[in-house]
Design a protein around this nucleic acid. Structure first.
Lengths: 124, 124
DNA sequence: TGACAACTTCTACAACTGTAGTAGAATCCT
DNA sequence: AGGATTCTACTACAGTTGTAGAAGTTGTCA
């Protein structure tokens, strides 16, 4: 399941809080995004159609909630990127991140801690 | 500069070896990719148009070479992904990679070493 | 109960993408 | 030189994406 740019905008808001109405989503989109209400409805319809969102008609109004989890969406997106741009392996991506992206001190510490934590979990 | 899926295929081959002819690219595309020769020409034309590739007519035939570097393409792609799917910050991406993507022992070691190396470089 | 507001469904449409055919120009082989 | 091969330039066309209007339907408030 691949999301388009516009769809990510919607999903990001939806994951924050759901179920949500189209109106509610409209209100919580970042200010830079100035879409007509019907644009949002169209996007939602497409997301429902592709099975990323569930629609629940409550009387006059629809409530939406995600079917695709944020985590899965991230996984998919990452996988696509890795396939496309990093020879299909996480290694090159990691390498690139560390070598190219000038991590700050604290980011590095964060990273080390995260690895630690993960190591512990694995020992369980 | 954003590349499409098909364009990545071309660029990946072109970065491997250039200057290259359209024919040469055709031959070095992964076997699964079975495009008509003219498809490749079309893609190349689009890449030239958007300034990612330079075309050099040598008599009858064109030679192509990248203007956009692999590194820059990767940077852009990563940036887009981070903006779209990881709240615009590398932190969450790192976190996700470490927590979700079950790095193997050796990947973790690699990562630690890379961080080490980068630390040293910075001290210069 | 009628007018206004808010929702919904349908339709639209231009730009971008994936994919390729056609026709004419250049090159090469015998 | 003439046919076969290979290029290039141009055109095409369906599907996807971004973006939204129009018109009909439901809810609400005086």
């Amino acid at each position: 399941m691949k999301l388009t740019d516009a769809e990510w905008q919607i999903m990001n808001v939806l994951w924050e809080r759901y179920p949500a109405t189209a109106r509610g989503i409209a209100e919580r989109l970042p200010k830079e995004v100035e879409w007509a209400y019907t644009t949002i409805k169209t996007l939602l319809a497409r997301l429902v159609e592709k099975g990323a969102v569930k629609e629940n008609k409550k009387g006059n109004t629809s409530l939406y909630e995600p079917l695709l989890s944020k985590q899965n969406a991230r996984r998919n997106a990452l996988k696509s990127l890795v396939n496309q741009a990093f020879d299909g392996a996480f290694g090159p991506l990691m390498h690139f991140l560390v070598e190219d992206q000038k991590l700050t001190e604290s980011q590095k510490k964060e990273l080390l801690k995260a690895i630690e934590r993960q190591n512990k979990k694995e020992k369980t």
